[in-house]
Amino acid sequence: MHWWKLEAEEFLSNFGPSEHPEVTYLLYEIQWGRSRRTWKNWCRNIHPEHAEIIFLEDEEVHDRPDIPCNITWFVPWTPCGACAYEIIAFLEERPNVNLEILAAQVYKPYDHRNRKGLRDLADEAQISIMEFSDYQYCWEKFVDHQGMNLRAGRGFSNQRRIDSRQLDSIINPF
Protein backbone atom coordinates (compact mmCIF):
# COMPACT_ATOMS: atom_id res chain seq x y z
CA MET A 1 0.00 0.00 0.00
CA HIS A 2 1.33 3.43 -0.94
CA TRP A 3 0.08 6.13 1.41
CA TRP A 4 -0.02 8.87 -1.24
CA LYS A 5 -1.72 6.91 -4.02
CA LEU A 6 -5.42 7.18 -4.87
CA GLU A 7 -7.81 4.33 -4.19
CA ALA A 8 -8.83 2.54 -7.41
CA GLU A 9 -12.48 3.54 -6.98
CA GLU A 10 -11.53 7.22 -6.54
CA PHE A 11 -9.59 7.14 -9.79
CA LEU A 12 -12.34 5.38 -11.73
CA SER A 13 -15.07 7.67 -10.42
CA ASN A 14 -12.95 10.72 -11.30
CA PHE A 15 -11.45 9.75 -14.64
CA GLY A 16 -13.99 7.29 -15.99
CA PRO A 17 -15.87 8.20 -19.16
CA SER A 18 -18.97 10.30 -18.57
CA GLU A 19 -18.32 10.61 -14.84
CA HIS A 20 -19.26 13.84 -13.07
CA PRO A 21 -17.37 13.69 -9.77
CA GLU A 22 -18.03 16.03 -6.87
CA VAL A 23 -14.35 15.85 -5.91
CA THR A 24 -11.79 16.55 -8.62
CA TYR A 25 -8.31 15.06 -8.44
CA LEU A 26 -5.39 16.53 -10.36
CA LEU A 27 -2.56 14.03 -10.74
CA TYR A 28 0.78 15.61 -11.53
CA GLU A 29 4.40 15.01 -12.31
CA ILE A 30 7.18 17.56 -12.06
CA GLN A 31 10.64 17.15 -13.49
CA TRP A 32 13.02 19.83 -12.23
CA GLY A 33 15.95 21.00 -14.32
CA ARG A 34 17.97 18.25 -15.93
CA SER A 35 17.07 15.68 -13.31
CA ARG A 36 15.87 12.34 -14.64
CA ARG A 37 13.73 11.88 -11.54
CA THR A 38 10.09 12.82 -11.68
CA TRP A 39 8.17 13.91 -8.61
CA LYS A 40 4.62 12.48 -8.63
CA ASN A 41 1.70 13.46 -6.45
CA TRP A 42 -1.89 14.65 -6.60
CA CYS A 43 -4.09 17.36 -5.22
CA ARG A 44 -7.84 17.79 -5.13
CA ASN A 45 -10.29 20.61 -5.14
CA ILE A 46 -11.27 22.16 -1.82
CA HIS A 47 -14.59 23.90 -2.38
CA PRO A 48 -14.77 26.54 -3.78
CA GLU A 49 -11.17 26.32 -5.09
CA HIS A 50 -10.62 24.18 -8.16
CA ALA A 51 -7.82 21.60 -8.13
CA GLU A 52 -5.82 23.63 -10.69
CA ILE A 53 -5.73 26.62 -8.33
CA ILE A 54 -4.77 24.41 -5.38
CA PHE A 55 -1.81 23.17 -7.43
CA LEU A 56 -0.77 26.67 -8.51
CA GLU A 57 -0.76 27.84 -4.89
CA ASP A 58 1.37 24.90 -3.69
CA GLU A 59 4.62 26.07 -2.06
CA GLU A 60 6.65 23.30 -3.72
CA VAL A 61 5.95 24.86 -7.09
CA HIS A 62 6.90 28.33 -5.88
CA ASP A 63 10.10 27.28 -4.03
CA ARG A 64 12.12 26.98 -7.25
CA PRO A 65 11.03 29.81 -9.56
CA ASP A 66 14.32 29.95 -11.50
CA ILE A 67 14.77 26.23 -12.15
CA PRO A 68 13.32 25.06 -15.46
CA CYS A 69 10.72 22.36 -15.08
CA ASN A 70 8.29 20.24 -17.00
CA ILE A 71 4.91 19.69 -15.41
CA THR A 72 2.34 17.17 -16.57
CA TRP A 73 -1.22 17.22 -15.28
CA PHE A 74 -3.73 14.41 -15.62
CA VAL A 75 -7.19 15.84 -14.94
CA PRO A 76 -10.76 14.57 -15.29
CA TRP A 77 -11.79 17.82 -17.01
CA THR A 78 -10.12 20.49 -19.09
CA PRO A 79 -9.74 23.68 -17.03
CA CYS A 80 -12.72 26.04 -16.83
CA GLY A 81 -12.33 29.52 -18.33
CA ALA A 82 -11.45 31.16 -15.00
CA CYS A 83 -8.80 28.55 -14.19
CA ALA A 84 -7.39 28.82 -17.71
CA TYR A 85 -6.54 32.48 -17.10
CA GLU A 86 -4.99 31.71 -13.70
CA ILE A 87 -2.84 29.05 -15.38
CA ILE A 88 -1.85 31.50 -18.14
CA ALA A 89 -0.81 34.08 -15.52
CA PHE A 90 1.22 31.42 -13.67
CA LEU A 91 3.00 30.39 -16.88
CA GLU A 92 3.67 33.99 -17.93
CA GLU A 93 5.36 34.61 -14.56
CA ARG A 94 7.46 31.47 -15.05
CA PRO A 95 8.70 31.27 -18.64
CA ASN A 96 10.92 28.34 -17.63
CA VAL A 97 7.89 26.11 -16.95
CA ASN A 98 6.46 23.81 -19.60
CA LEU A 99 2.97 22.52 -18.85
CA GLU A 100 1.21 19.61 -20.49
CA ILE A 101 -2.44 19.00 -19.59
CA LEU A 102 -4.01 15.64 -20.35
CA ALA A 103 -7.74 15.66 -19.64
CA ALA A 104 -10.25 12.83 -19.60
CA GLN A 105 -13.11 15.07 -20.83
CA VAL A 106 -13.85 18.58 -22.02
CA TYR A 107 -15.45 20.66 -19.27
CA LYS A 108 -18.70 22.37 -20.32
CA PRO A 109 -17.67 22.57 -23.97
CA TYR A 110 -20.49 24.90 -25.04
CA ASP A 111 -19.78 27.58 -22.44
CA HIS A 112 -18.17 30.45 -24.37
CA ARG A 113 -15.94 31.41 -21.40
CA ASN A 114 -14.52 27.89 -21.22
CA ARG A 115 -14.00 27.78 -24.99
CA LYS A 116 -12.16 31.13 -25.01
CA GLY A 117 -10.10 30.16 -21.96
CA LEU A 118 -9.02 26.88 -23.58
CA ARG A 119 -8.12 28.61 -26.85
CA ASP A 120 -5.98 31.14 -25.00
CA LEU A 121 -4.45 28.49 -22.73
CA ALA A 122 -3.49 26.40 -25.77
CA ASP A 123 -1.08 29.22 -26.71
CA GLU A 124 0.78 28.70 -23.42
CA ALA A 125 0.41 24.97 -22.64
CA GLN A 126 -0.09 21.71 -24.46
CA ILE A 127 -3.66 20.42 -23.94
CA SER A 128 -4.96 17.07 -25.13
CA ILE A 129 -7.45 14.35 -24.29
CA MET A 130 -6.08 11.29 -22.52
CA GLU A 131 -5.38 8.16 -24.57
CA PHE A 132 -6.01 4.76 -23.04
CA SER A 133 -2.23 4.48 -22.54
CA ASP A 134 -2.43 7.64 -20.36
CA TYR A 135 -5.14 6.01 -18.22
CA GLN A 136 -2.95 2.93 -17.88
CA TYR A 137 0.05 5.07 -16.93
CA CYS A 138 -1.97 6.87 -14.24
CA TRP A 139 -3.33 3.54 -13.04
CA GLU A 140 0.19 2.20 -12.57
CA LYS A 141 1.84 5.34 -11.17
CA PHE A 142 -0.88 7.10 -9.15
CA VAL A 143 -3.38 4.44 -8.11
CA ASP A 144 -3.18 1.87 -5.33
CA HIS A 145 -4.86 -0.69 -7.58
CA GLN A 146 -3.71 -3.71 -5.52
CA GLY A 147 -3.03 -5.79 -8.61
CA MET A 148 -6.31 -5.04 -10.39
CA ASN A 149 -6.05 -4.39 -14.12
CA LEU A 150 -7.55 -1.39 -15.86
CA ARG A 151 -9.65 -2.70 -18.73
CA ALA A 152 -10.07 -0.86 -22.01
CA GLY A 153 -13.69 -2.01 -22.20
CA ARG A 154 -14.86 0.68 -19.77
CA GLY A 155 -15.67 3.05 -22.64
CA PHE A 156 -12.40 5.00 -22.51
CA SER A 157 -11.84 4.77 -26.29
CA ASN A 158 -15.28 6.00 -27.41
CA GLN A 159 -15.24 8.91 -24.97
CA ARG A 160 -11.73 9.83 -26.08
CA ARG A 161 -12.73 10.14 -29.74
CA ILE A 162 -15.69 12.38 -28.91
CA ASP A 163 -13.77 14.64 -26.53
CA SER A 164 -10.69 14.78 -28.73
CA ARG A 165 -12.74 16.09 -31.68
CA GLN A 166 -14.54 18.50 -29.37
CA LEU A 167 -11.28 19.87 -27.92
CA ASP A 168 -9.76 20.23 -31.37
CA SER A 169 -12.80 22.18 -32.60
CA ILE A 170 -12.48 24.53 -29.61
CA ILE A 171 -8.74 25.14 -29.90
CA ASN A 172 -8.72 25.28 -33.71
CA PRO A 173 -12.18 26.62 -34.59
CA PHE A 174 -11.40 27.53 -38.20
Rank of each mutant, 00 (worst) to 15 (best):
L150D: 01
W32K: 11
A84Y: 04
C69I: 09
L99S: 08
P79K: 03
L56R: 05
Y25R: 00
H2R: 14
V106L: 03
K116R: 15
V75T: 14
D111L: 09
E86W: 09
D58T: 14
R34C: 07
P48I: 07
E7G: 09
I171D: 00
W42G: 03
E29F: 06
P79F: 04
P173Y: 01
S169A: 11
E124N: 11
I67F: 04
N70M: 10
W139V: 06
I53S: 09
A103Q: 02
L121W: 02
W39E: 13
S35Y: 03
Q136T: 15
I129D: 01
W73R: 05
I30S: 02
P109I: 04
A89I: 10
N158R: 08
H20D: 15
S169C: 07
F74T: 06
H2K: 13
N172C: 10
E124M: 12
R36P: 15
H20M: 11
W4Y: 11
I71H: 01
N114E: 12
H47T: 15
I46M: 14
R113A: 12
R165S: 07
E57R: 15
E52L: 04
P109D: 10
K40Y: 10
I170V: 11
G16I: 09
E86F: 11
E131V: 06
E92S: 05
V143R: 01
Y137E: 06
D123N: 10
S169P: 06
S133H: 07
L91S: 08
S133K: 06
Q159T: 02
I30L: 04
P48T: 09
V61K: 00
S133M: 02
P79R: 03
L167R: 01
S13C: 11
S169G: 09
R44A: 13
Y28V: 13
D66N: 14
